[in-house]
Amino acid sequence: MSALDDDGLDALLRARAPHPAIGEPELDPGDLQAWRSGRLDAEQAAAVDAVLARSAADRAMLADLAAPVDAGLLDRMAVATPRPQSNRRLVWAGAGLALAAGLTFAVLRPGAPDAPAYTLGAVRGAVKITRSQTPTQGSGEPAVFVPDGTLRLTVRPTDAGRTAAAARAFAACDDGAFRAVDGLEAGADGAWTLVASARSLFGEAPGRCVVAIALAADADALADLDGMDPATAAEDGGVQLVPLTVDYRATPDGETP
């Protein structure tokens, strides 16, 4: 055979590569990730090598493990971790950014009871849904609502054993103050669901809006939130705030009617 350069050899090898049937993966994804991270001993790693060399299904799983995880989802996961037990005074700097990113955050005061931790669940009624029914979770894109739409938003406790006794819903548009809104109801397993027309929440003018559900261990903690600036709110009480950022449009395409 004539001598081939590297590219020629690569082409030859690819042409002659076997493509057996793709079966079920043999390896556990956790073990495979430990292999990728160099956390297996030599014997374990050699066993994984042997499987990967013959199993296309297991090699395909490497793609899932190597793909970057959505930054928005990592933010949500990080926020779900416990808060420090000491120095519970929350620094509010950056709260506006957190709102824009659709993150949950807490308003805490020393001595106030800790607010139960909640996370954004399903969001329904948006005219434009990205990858899931929870547009600000994972995709980082705001949910698009129009005045005639009905927003249905559910928040759920991260710990079923620790639920909020009181909750209130608020809305604000274009950096305005929070305004209390109606339509919030307690559901099963500590969940709270807000059902309201977009018009009643955000009015008529298009813009960037926030709808938030504030949760607390007692109703007193929620008394002073009405009129609060979402970005620079004063510290007041042990409250968990779960916001949803909304792109409020006159029409689904953003046109002025």
Binding site: P29, G30, L32, Q33, M61, D64, L65, A66, A67, V69, L73, L74, M77, A78, T81, P82
Partner: peptide, 15 residues
């Protein structure tokens, strides 16, 4: 918490 989330997220997703 962030480091932990970054470490486990690919595994949870693959699973």
């Amino acid at each position: 918490g962030r480091r932990l989330a970054e470490r486990v997220a690919p595994v949870i997703r693959a699973r």
